[in-house]
């Protein structure tokens, strides 16, 4: 599924409950991250729960990301973040308007300030990787 499809699917969901059941489902389906990456080196600071994000560079120049969290809702949000950013070129990553996407998903009003900060920390980490890799 890509992010456009997710936005479409979200249009059929109303209320926070259905949206979050869906997000939890995305979290449960997120491919597991190898336990060897559950270290400080791959941790995203600034999140309330533990979040890991691991980049790798593909031969075609795109960046692939894997992620994980100990909290399921956050894991679901990571799944969305990966849909937005993974397997894109650094230029594409820099051009993403992530706030617009979350607004289209109708999630902005359901995110607490601390969760929003966590998301910002994640996207900044991705943009930083895009700058150096």
């Amino acid at each position: 599924m890509n992010i456009e499809e997710l936005i479409e699917n979200f249009e059929f969901l109303d209320g926070w409950e259905d949206k979050y059941r869906y997000i939890i489902d995305l979290g449960e389906k997120l491919p597991p991250l190898d336990a060897k990456f559950h270290t400080d080196e791959w941790k995203v600071r600034g999140c309330q729960s533990q979040v890991w994000l691991v980049p790798s560079k593909r031969p075609d120049g795109t960046l692939h990301f894997e992620g994980d969290s100990d909290a399921m809702i956050v894991k679901g949000l990571i799944a969305i973040v990966l849909m937005i950013y993974s397997d894109k070129s650094p230029a594409e990553i820099k051009a993403v308007a992530v706030d617009d996407i979350f607004a289209k998903l109708g999630l902005s009003e359901h995110l607490s300030p601390s969760r929003r900060n966590g998301l910002i920390a994640m996207t900044e980490k991705i943009r930083a990787y895009a700058g150096i890799l």
Binding site: Y20, S49, I73, S112
Partner: peptide, 21 residues
């Protein structure tokens, strides 16, 4: 099976204030 952070999120939506951590 429920991370405290996830639990607190649902409780908050239900108007229940608890502390996690």
């Amino acid at each position: 099976g429920i991370h405290p952070q996830d639990l607190a999120f649902i409780l908050d939506k239900e108007g229940v204030a608890v502390r996690v951590g």
